[in-house]
Design a binder for these strands. Structure first.
Lengths: 233, 233
DNA sequence: TCAAATACACTACCATGGTAATATGTCAAT
DNA sequence: ATTGACATATTACCATGGTAGTGTATTTGA
C-alpha cells in the first residue's frame, strides 16, 4: 500500500516556525510506535516530504535518527522501511531499560527525598484516575511521566534519553497488549509498590519491584508471537 | 584559532567509495576524544567541508550525531562548538556505563562459557604485552576490545552501542590520565579479576570488580579539575 | 517456453544555492 | 569615553538538482 493512501492528517501537525527535523522525527516515530505505520512498510524521503509539505533534507535527517533507534531500516540505494519487530531487539531493549531504570530507582530510594515522593504520589493519583476512567492514552502519558520523574529527580537526564530511545522497541509491543482488562490496574499497583519502597528508603526492594514491573513485557511478547506473527520479521 | 591553522592531515583519511557521513563522524569524534580538537573550539560546516573536501551535507549529519553524543554543542544560526567537559555529564556517562556493563558482566558470568573466557584470556595476553611495552595506543584498543567481547558474547550489541556513545564523555577525560606510571598495569589487574570471577561463575564478584574498575574515572576527574581547569565549562 | 541480457524506474546519497536569525564591528550622538 | 543604532558577515537550516547503485520489468535469444 502506498504511503499517500493512508490517513495523513496526523502527520501534518508541523509548525514551520520551529526546527522541522525534530518535529518530523517525533511525528514519524509516533506513527511507527502506535503501528499506524506498519512494520515492513516502505517509507521514502520523497513521498514523506511531499506529504509533510517540506523538503527531503529534514525528512532524511529524521529517518537517520529513527534508524539509530532501530525503528526503521535504511538500505542505501534501495529504500527505507519500517523495521519489523525483532524479538531479539525487543529483549535487548528490555535488558538495557531494566539495567538503567533499576539503577536509577536505587539512587532515588537512597535519597528518599520527600518532595520527590510527593511528586510521585501526584503522578500516582493521575494514574488512578486514568485507570478508573479507562483512559488508555491518559494512562500511557502519565506512565511515561512517572518514569521520567524518577530519572529527573536524581539529575539523570541523559539516562532518560537513552531509556526513551530503546523504549521505542518496547512501546511498539506494549501498545498491543495495553487494552487487556485489568492490565492498567496491575501496572498502577506496581508503580505504587515502587513508590512505597522509595519512601521507606528500601533501595533493594525498589530495585526488585522495578525489575518485576519492567519484565511485564515478556508476557506480552509471548502473547503477540501467537496472535500477530506477521508483524515480526 | 582557526580550524584550518591546525594540522589537517588526520582529518583527510576519507574513502570516497564508502558512505561519507559515518566516516566524517568517526573522524571528528576521534579528534575530539584525543583533544586535538579542543573543548569550546568553534567548528563550522563550511570550514570542515572545505578541509575534508566534501560538501556541507554529510558534515552536517556528522555534527548532528556528535551533538547527540554530547560531544558538540549546536546553537542554531550561531555556530557549532566542541562541547566543554561538563563534570555532571561525565558523571552521568559513568553512571550509565556502570549500570549497563555491570548487568552485562553478570550475564556473562552466569553463562560462564569456556569459549568466551578463552577469548577474554587472549585479550588479556595482548593487554599484558601492551603494558610491558608501554604501548599506550595498543592497550587502549585492546581495552576497548575487551569490553566489546563481554557485550558481544551475550549478544548485546545495542547495549554496546549505547556504552560506546556515552563512553565518549569518559574517554576525553581518561586520555589525559592514562600516561600515569603504573596505571595501565592497574587496569590490567582489574580486567584479570573480572575474568577470574567470570570463570568461576561468580556473578556478584564479577559485578563488584567491574563497578570498581569503571569507577577509576572518579579519581581522574579530581586530578583534572586541579590540573586542567580550562577544559571544563 | 524459458533463460539471459538489457532498459527502465526508483532509491539514498551528496553537492550547492538561498534564507532568516544571530553575532560583530563601525560609527554617530551624548 | 560610552552607549546606541545600523551595516555587514557568518551561521545553521532548508530546498532542490544531479549521480551512482539497486531492484524489476521487458525484450531478446534459443
Amino acid at each position: 500500500m502506498a504511503l499517500t493512501d493512508r490517513q495523513s492528517t496526523s502527520l501534518l501537525a508541523i509548525d514551520p516556525k520551529l526546527p522541522m527535523a525534530p518535529q518530523i522525527y517525533g511525528n514519524i516515530r509516533q506513527s511507527i510506535l502506535n503501528l499506524r505505520l506498519a512494520p515492513k512498510q516502505a517509507l521514502s524521503e520523497k513521498e514523506l516530504a511531499l506529504m509533510l509539505g517540506v523538503s527531503r533534507t529534514p525528512v532524511r535527517e529524521a529517518l537517520i535518527k529513527l534508524a539509530e533507534d532501530g525503528l526503521v531500516d535504511i538500505f542505501p540505494q534501495r529504500g527505507t522501511f519500517v523495521a519489523p519487530i525483532r524479538v531479539s531487539e525487543v529483549l535487548e531493549a528490555q535488558f538495557i531499560r531494566e539495567a538503567l531504570e533499576v539503577s536509577v530507582v536505587a539512587r532515588v530510594a537512597e535519597m528518599s527525598d520527600p518532595t520527590v515522593t510527593a511528586r510521585l504520589h501526584e503522578s500516582l493519583a493521575r494514574q488512578k484516575r486514568a485507570v478508573d476512567n479507562g483512559d488508555l492514552d491518559g494512562f500511557l502519558a502519565e506512565d511515561e511521566n512517572f518514569h521520567f520523574i524518577l530519572s529527573a529527580s536524581v539529575n539523570l537526564t541523559r539516562a532518560w534519553k537513552v531509556i526513551q530511545n530503546v523504549k521505542g522497541q518496547l512501546d511498539r509491543v506494549r501498545i498491543l497488549s495495553l487494552p487487556e482488562p485489568g492490565h492498567l490496574a496491575e501496572l498502577y499497583e506496581q508503580h505504587l509498590a515502587i513508590v512505597t519502597a522509595i519512601e521507606s528508603g528500601n533501595s533493594s526492594a525498589a530495585k526488585k519491584h522495578m525489575a518485576k514491573h519492567l519484565q511485564q513485557v515478556f508476557r506480552t511478547i509471548d502473547l503477540l508471537l501467537a496472535q500477530r506473527p506477521e508483524i515480526f520479521d
